[in-house]
Lab assay of single mutants.
Amino acid sequence: MAASAHGSVWGPLRLGIPGLCCRRPPLGLYARMRRLPGPEVSGRSVAAASGPGAWGTDHYCLELLRKRDYEGYLCSLLLPAESRSSVFALRAFNVELAQVKDSVSEKTIGLMRMQFWKKTVEDIYCDNPPHQPVAIELWKAVKRHNLTKRWLMKIVDEREKNLDDKAYRNIKELENYAENTQSSLLYLTLEILGIKDLHADHAASHIGKAQGIVTCLRATPYHGSRRKVFLPMDICMLHGVSQEDFLRRNQDKNVRDVIYDIASQAHLHLKHARSFHKTVPVKAFPAFLQTVSLEDFLKKIQRVDFDIFHPSLQQKNTLLPLYLYIQSWRKTY
C-alpha cells in the first residue's frame, strides 16, 4: 500500500487533545456564526451592495467568503475584532481572482478581468477605488493598515499566469505559485494584525505553500471532471502515471504514490512551519489557523491510503469550527 511504503514521513496525529474535556472553552465561534445575517447573495444585490440601503460592502465580502471560501471565513471569524473586516476584504479579493479561471470560457475574457483587478489595485493606492464592493472594502483595508501593494499585485499576476490550462511542470513550480498567492495572502494578513517579524514571515511562507499544494490536491477530482489535470508532471512521470490515469480515476498503487509524494511535500512544509513556532510572536498565530484544515485533509487522505478520489475527501468536517476554536484558544498553530 502507498501509505505503508512511505509511512515514515507522517508524524503522530495532533488533533487529539488529552485532558481537553476537563476545561470548557468559552463560547465564541458558534455564537458569532449565529449572529451573522444570512440572506442569499443575488446578482441584483451584488450590483447594489455598495449603494445606500443595501447590506453594505462589508456584508457582501463576508457573504462571498462564506459561500466560496468557507474555511477562510471560519478562520477570519476568530481574528481580533479590529482586524476582521480587513481580512474579510482581503480574502474576498482572493476569491474574486480565484473564480475568474473557472467562470470564463475564453482566456481573453479572463485576461480582461485580471486587467480590471490590476487597475483596481492601482486605483486603490491612488484613493480612487471603483464602485465595486470588494474594491471598496480592500481600499478601506489598505488605508487602515498601510498594506504593501507588492503582495496584492503578486496575487493578481500569479492568478493571471495561471489562466493557462497547463499542469505544473514540477513541484517547485506549484510551490512558486502557492508562494505568490497563498503566502502573499498571509503576509498581508500579518500586516493587518500589525506583525512585522521575520520568523512570522518564514512560517507564512511555508504554510502558504502547504495551502497551495493541498488546494491543488483537493481540486483534482473537480478538475478531472472537466478533463483537466494540474498535478506536477515530474512526480507523475517518476511513477509512470499519465494524465489519462487521473481522468479515468485510476486507483492503482502508482497513482496513489503520486498523491503521496505531493501530500508529503505539504506535510513537510507544515511540519517545518511549526518547528520554530517558539520564535514566532503569539500575536501572529491567528493568521495561521488554516493549519487546522490543512492537517485535517492530510490526515483524511492518509486514512484512505492516498486515494484522491475517495468520497470521504469531499465531505465537510462538521467539527472544523470546534477544532479551529480550540486551536485559537490554545494559542498555537
Rank of each mutant, 00 (worst) to 15 (best):
T291C: 09
G72K: 05
Q314S: 10
L217N: 00
K228C: 14
V255F: 12
G53T: 11
D305Y: 03
V156I: 09
S45M: 12
H310Y: 04
A219H: 04
N180P: 02
L111N: 13
I326F: 15
L174R: 02
V282C: 08
L138V: 12
R84D: 00
H272Q: 12
A203M: 03
A210D: 02
V134G: 04
H59V: 08
M237P: 00
E191L: 03
I326W: 13
L322I: 14
P232H: 06
L78E: 01
S45V: 04
G53L: 13
E158S: 13
L289N: 06
M233T: 06
A48C: 14
V104H: 13
I262H: 02
D102A: 09
P311M: 08
G224T: 15
L193E: 00
Y333M: 12
D157H: 11
L138R: 02
P221D: 13
D157G: 13
T120G: 07
I213K: 00
R256N: 07
S275K: 10
G208A: 01
D197C: 06
I136E: 10
R248Q: 08
M112R: 10
A141F: 00
K166H: 13
V229A: 13
N250F: 11
K271Q: 09
K101E: 08
E96N: 08
S264G: 13
D296M: 09
P286N: 10
T189I: 15
A135R: 02
L313C: 08
T279N: 12
K271V: 15
K67C: 10
I195A: 08
E160G: 13
Q132V: 14
A200F: 01
K140V: 00
E158W: 12
A98E: 05
K143W: 07
R159T: 04
R218P: 02
L77C: 04
L193M: 09
R256L: 03
H202P: 00
E175G: 00
F306I: 00
I192L: 11
D197Q: 09
A141E: 02
F309N: 08
F93V: 03
H145R: 04
N170D: 15
L79F: 14
S105K: 15
Q182R: 07
H223T: 07
E82G: 11
E63Q: 14
W55K: 13
V229H: 10
K154F: 04
M153Y: 12
H272M: 15
G212F: 01
K166Q: 10
G51P: 07
V87I: 14
D307S: 02
I262P: 00
R330V: 08
A200H: 00
L313R: 00
F276E: 06
K278C: 12
A167N: 13
H223E: 15
P286T: 08
V214D: 04
S76K: 00
K299N: 11
K278S: 09
H206E: 05
A287N: 00
N250T: 08
L198A: 05
A167Q: 08
H202S: 05
I207R: 00
N162P: 03
L185D: 01
T57I: 10
T291I: 08
A167G: 15
P80F: 02
S103G: 15
N176P: 00
D296T: 06
L77T: 04
R150W: 08
L74W: 03
D165S: 15
A203K: 00
S105G: 15
K149R: 08
I155E: 00
P52T: 14
H145F: 15
I301M: 08
R274L: 00
L111C: 11
S275M: 11
L174P: 01
T189C: 14
R303P: 01
D234S: 07
C216G: 04
E71G: 07
E122L: 13
S45E: 06
G240F: 03
G212S: 04
H269I: 02
R84H: 11
A266I: 03
K331N: 12
C126L: 15
S85G: 10
K316M: 09
Y177A: 08
A178H: 01
K271T: 13
L111A: 12
L238I: 14
A47Y: 15
V87F: 13
K172H: 10
K161V: 09
V292I: 14
H206L: 05
H277W: 11
N146Q: 14
K118F: 03
E106C: 05
G110A: 12
E175I: 05
F246M: 12
L174A: 02
V304I: 08
S312F: 09
M233E: 05
Y260A: 07
K209A: 03
V134R: 02
D164M: 11
K67G: 07
G240D: 12
Y125S: 03
Y168S: 04
I213A: 01
A273F: 03
F309T: 07
V46I: 15
A81W: 12
P286G: 13
R169Q: 11
H131T: 15
L152Y: 01
T318R: 09
N170W: 04
Q132Y: 15
K316T: 15
C126W: 10
E63C: 09
I207G: 00
D58S: 12
R66A: 08
K331A: 11
G208F: 02
P221L: 10
K253Y: 14
S83E: 13
R144P: 00
I195G: 03
Q314E: 08
T279V: 15
S50P: 13
K166E: 08
R66Y: 09
L62K: 06
A47E: 03
R66C: 06
L247D: 03
R226S: 09
E158T: 13
E63D: 14
K118T: 05
K67D: 10
L217F: 03
D164Q: 12
A49L: 15
R113Q: 11
Y325K: 10
E160A: 12
D257N: 11
S275N: 14
F288V: 02
K228F: 13
R227N: 11
Y187C: 05
D234R: 01
W139S: 08
A54K: 09
F297H: 08
K154H: 08
D296L: 09
A204H: 01
K172F: 09
D58E: 13
V280E: 00
W55T: 15
E160F: 13
P232G: 00
G72E: 06
D69C: 04
V292K: 09
S312R: 11
E122K: 12
F246Q: 02
L97G: 02
Q290M: 09
H269A: 02
L90H: 00
S76R: 02
H277I: 07
N146T: 13
P286M: 08
Q243M: 08
D307N: 08
K331S: 11
V104S: 14
L74S: 02
D157W: 10
I124P: 01
E82P: 15
N170M: 04
L270P: 00
K161S: 14
L152C: 03
C75D: 03
R303V: 08
G208I: 00
N94M: 04
A89L: 00
A287M: 04
V258C: 14
H131A: 14
G72P: 03
K161G: 13
H131L: 13
D234M: 00
V100Y: 06
R226C: 11
R169N: 10
L185W: 00
A89W: 02
A210T: 08
L186C: 09
N162A: 11
S312Q: 08
G212C: 06
I192S: 14
K119Q: 12
D165F: 10
T57W: 11
N170C: 06
L138I: 09
G51M: 09
D69R: 01
A135P: 07
L147D: 01
V241I: 11
P80E: 07
E137I: 01
F288W: 03
M237C: 10
F309R: 04
S183I: 05
D252W: 09
I192Q: 02
S312I: 10
S293H: 13
P133F: 06
F276S: 07
Y222R: 08
V214Y: 04
L62W: 13
L322W: 10
V304Q: 05
I308R: 04
V87N: 14
C61M: 12
H267F: 12
M233Q: 11
G240P: 01
L238P: 03
F306V: 00
L77S: 03
E158F: 09
Y333V: 03
F93K: 01
V104K: 07
T120W: 09
V255K: 07
G72V: 07
V46S: 07
I136P: 00
G194V: 00
V121T: 03
P221E: 08
A266S: 07
H310Q: 04
K196Y: 07
H267R: 08
L270M: 11
S205C: 09
R249Y: 11
W117Q: 00
V95Y: 06
A135K: 00
W139P: 01
L319E: 03
L247Q: 04
D197L: 01
Y260V: 05
H199N: 09
L298I: 12
D102G: 09
K143E: 04
F93S: 02
A135C: 10
G56S: 11
H223A: 11
T57E: 11
E244R: 04
